[in-house]
Design a protein around this nucleic acid. Structure first.
Length: 299
DNA sequence: GTCCAGGATGGGC
DNA sequence: GCCCATCATGGA
């Protein structure tokens, strides 16, 4: 077991991120939380890596990991992965300053202080998850994801627990639609996912390329692929590329959160939401992410 | 039984 | 360009 330390900024709270991860922990098949420690396995540069993240000393994220390969590069790639996972490079101060000027959001932000957009650093995983979740309720989406991961993913054993690794695009590119409809994906989603798997495997769609583009161009690039509409593109840019202004405005969860927060009899329409979110320009991904959390507490 | 879920697409007009 | 049926299942 090797160790990696990541120093975190004043506007980061590991406890808030753990709280977020805990919300869907029962449904999640790609990590486990145990005594304030996040445990997970991923594939980095083709090598399976198991890691545990905790915070024994305030503002020092401690990552213990086991890598199967003997690559010294693992440390750097893992550091990159964790940085994206908790969006560590972003300073939330400007976002919080905007929050102080909004009576509706101010208490929400106070409650969630230090929460980062918990990301899905792997582009293929992020797109698959977004497509899987289209139109269906989240509980069912998690069921589909679990079947997909347990059927086509690799796994590693650690201390008596099995940790699954999200299936590689190369493997999924070889599947047929019926392989996925057998797991109760719709035929359409199955075709979308296999199409994206081929695009990523053939490097026609890469994270590195998207990272060089500004938000609007990255979005245009993404929606060229079947199955990726405006919502999915924004969701992916938000969760996988840490683009702080990505705004999945069509999201029904966002609509419900606003309706609830504003105590409205019915949902706002898209132009109204667009207008309302204008002051948050630059931070609309965080705005969305924080609003989603207001749907989870049953108060 | 009905309606809605963290949407996208292709057809008809 | 807008409107609408379709998808595939589960939970309220």
């Amino acid at each position: 077991m090797q160790t990696l330390i990541l120093n975190t900024s004043e506007t980061f709270r590991f406890s808030s991120c753990l709280w977020y991860l805990h919300q869907w922990c029962d449904h999640e098949c790609l990590h486990r939380i145990e005594v304030k420690t996040l445990k997970k396995a991923v594939r980095l540069n083709g090598n399976p890596v198991y890691f545990e993240i905790s915070e024994p000393i305030p503002s020092q994220l401690t990552v213990n990991y086991v890598a199967s390969g003997s690559h010294s590069a693992t440390c750097d790639v893992l550091k990159e992965y964790i940085t994206a996972l908790f969006d560590l490079d972003t300073d939330l101060l400007p976002f919080y300053q905007l929050g102080e000027q909004d009576d509706l959001l101010e208490p929400v932000i106070q409650k969630l202080y230090g929460l980062r957009i918990v990301g899905i650093p792997d582009l293929f995983e992020a797109v698959c998850w977004a497509i899987t979740g289209q139109q269906i309720n989240l509980a069912f989406a998690y069921t589909l994801k679990r079947r997909f991961v347990e059927t086509f993913g690799d796994c590693i054993e650690q201390e008596g627990h099995t940790y699954f690794i999200f299936p590689s695009s190369a493997l999924v590119a070889q599947l047929s639609v019926s392989d996925l409809t057998a797991l109760q994906f719709s035929a359409r989603k199955a075709a979308y996912i296999i199409g994206i798997a081929k695009a990523i495997t053939h490097q026609e769609l890469t994270k590195a390329q998207l990272q060089t583009l500004p938000l609007e161009q990255a979005k245009e690039r993404l929606v060229q692929w079947k199955g990726i509409g405006n919502w999915t593109a924004n969701y992916v840019l938000m969760k996988s590329l840490q683009m702080q202004d990505a705004f999945p405005i069509e999201d029904v969860g966002l609509h419900n959160a606003l309706k609830k927060l504003m105590k409205l009899p019915q949902k706002l329409d898209l132009p109204a939401i667009e207008q309302w979110a204008k002051p948050w320009s630059g931070w609309r991904a965080y705005l969305t992410f924080y609003l989603w959390q207001t749907l989870l507490d049953h108060e």
